[in-house]
Design a protein around this nucleic acid. Sequence first.
DNA 1: GCGGACTGCTTACCT
DNA 2: ACAGGTAAGCAGTCCGCG
Length: 828
Amino acid sequence: MLYILSASYDSVLNAVKLELYNDKTEEMEEWTDADFKAYFLSKRDPAPLVSRWKTIVKKELIKKYDALNDKEVEMWKVSVNNPLAVKKSQEIEQTYENYIKFFQCYIYDKDIKMGMPYRRENDKNDKLVFQYDQDAQQRIQEILNLDSFKNLTSEEREVFEKWAMLLEYPAPNFKRASLDIEVFNEGENQIPNAEAALLPVLSICLASNRGEKIAFILVQADKPITDFPENITKVVIFNDEKLMLEQLFEAIETYPLIITFNGDDFDLKYLYYRALRLGVPHQKIPIIVKPKICILRKSIHIDLYKFFSIKAMKIYAFGDKYKDVDLDSVARALIKRGKIEGEERWIVKMSYHDLIRYCMNDAEITLELTTYNNDLVMNLIIVLERMSRMPIINVSRKSVSSWIKSFMLYEHRQRNILIPIPEEIKTIKGQTVSEAIIKGKKYKGAIVYDPIAGTHFLVKVLDFASLYPSIIKVYNIGYSTINCPHPECKTNTIGELPHWMCTKNRSLESLLIGSLRDLRVFWYKKQAKNSSLDKVLKDWYGVAEQSIKVIMNASYGVFGAESFVLYCPPVAEEVTAIARHVIGKTTEHAQEIGLNVLYGDTDSIFIKDPPEDKLRELIDWTYKKYGIEFEVDKIYRYVCLSIRKKNYFGVKIDGEVDVKGLTGKKKHTPPIIKTAFNDTKKILSEVKTPEELEIGKKEIMDLVKRVYFIFKNRSWENVSDLAFSVTMNSALEDYKKTMPQHVKAAKLLIERGYQIGAGSVIRFVKTDKRLAGGTNVKPVETVKKHEVDVRKYIEFLKSTFEQVLDPMNINFEQDILGVTRLDQWSHK
DNA sequence: GCGGACTGCTTACCT
DNA sequence: ACAGGTAAGCAGTCCGCG
């Protein structure tokens, strides 16, 4: 079978080119279509253009459905011979759909199912035909027959089936290899410039999921050849760097997919420029360097750095497990394996043995990041390719909003709906009416209730399943249905805002997001936990479930994001307004029936020791009133709420400690305090009863006291344990308004020759101005023990632990410092 | 010149 | 470039103060 992995514009053939993965030969194949023409739409007759533009091959009057005005419109469809002309047409007023990439246009119009199986029908002019899968089709029928889905309309059924196909069809085990290179550098912390490519490539490692581990190394003068690490399938030694690169290029072409970590910006870019510099002819280099990415002529290049950087992926699919996006952090978090730590960290000084070991290890973990848990990451990429209807190269590098945009555009094209221009949505649908709490925001968002501080035993947390997507579904919200043109719909207002919703037409958003939501709630979530399934299938369902989650979590936010094609802030504010209404009324009702509500945030309510019947009553009442499932999400043995919002911890029945928002878990917190905090978690997880809590409290107090004395006596072992690690989000020169501490430290590092830019994590220690030459901060690399500002650290210890101690009625000043403080005063 | 009250900036978190 | 809401710490500003 042939799986479509890529679509692009081939400028030589002036055609759309599809790249197909053949799962039998494990090679890439091509398929081109030169008949499809790029086009744009225009409200006015493009006659004057036709005479001037030689590229125009056809113009015709077509009908489109204008969803903003709920009427049919006539549009000129102008086909051109060169896709660039479509881009150029953006300069003309009242033209539509000309920002869509040519190959995407092809995918949408021809309904090309990206990432899905096809076969060639050779007898009929090499046609591509979709290949049905019996097992998958059977499962799809099973889904459509679920009780929860028996009342679907035919329109809904069609949409459910379409989503289910993308999620039920299996994906092959794609043959792939990871690639990592090491380059001569002039100092331990120097990173060679990829565009200059002045220095030789010292080693190249490839690791494939078919078991190959190939190492290429360049002989360095004065370095004796010794032994090589075991488990390498092939080591090739070169005296000639050019020959090494040429052989690598041949090897690369034998893999349909190449995986790198930061290959766009370094490995592939370096190889390309280095090869050119060494005189390899351009045509013999399989790498094409584009402005921000590197692609391969015959393979698909996936840069995992780009993929793991996608914020929605990081947070929702990987649970924010890795804090920084570098190979070591990501691998440690996901596959419990990191980069090799050795005494010698400078590539140039390593023996061939150690160099290969180091380089191959990077290649191996890069590969493993795509293979662990039955190809979790690879499958995520494929499922997202399918759902977004974008080529792998694009979907793995672009963010969730572009995926949503892409499938929305597809659905418009499939239904012959004119894709509105942002300006029109704005003028017809109006602006926001609510006022945000945060200065500078466009509209009011979620509501957070004040917690009832204290330690509470047996707390149940109830929440709405996907509240925002549910609201979009239930209340038929969308850019076309909000404030629709029908006078008779104007009375259909829902919450506190004056916006009304259409009663005649179903919004695309409600249909698409609603169906995804239902599939997730009633099928994929359950299947992902279904232990009676084969492990591979179960893991696949996990992937499907996570993919839906990522897309759904962003599905409301995009309508409040100016950059989104269908930007419509009234939609976004209506969703949050209804959510506030729903959670507010639910809380009120809970209190009315005598439940003890402790806290709530956006879509959840914390209830203390609720009687089962009352809980049932609330859940039923809520579902009846709003049509949204409200269910018990978590049960805490006990929960400690401080007076602060978004700031608590709870211990679940199984002893797992849930920490939310506390400073102790934030990534910038110095290791010494973080360690103490983690020890505290251990103590808390043991506590089962109020009596045991008293014992736990004493242990925690002792623990905090110990840390206090470490600071007071300056008896820490290593200053690096005192380092705050703060990310510098902007380039140094962009800090114009203030000079935060981490930026100050970054400046000091740059003076010492370190390479630091936007995204660097700065580790710094707070210093005493009087002891550290007038500066209150120093990079951990340069700080001396006596310069540390101990007072600041005790302050930080205090505020970190107050968040834990307050709800347990422990006073830091009195109960931890008490005696000591008096001690200090008596000296004065 | 130096503190306190205040605002705004920055980061990291929660939903 | 998915959103808004919250916590925390620090930088910078203004004001008062013989």
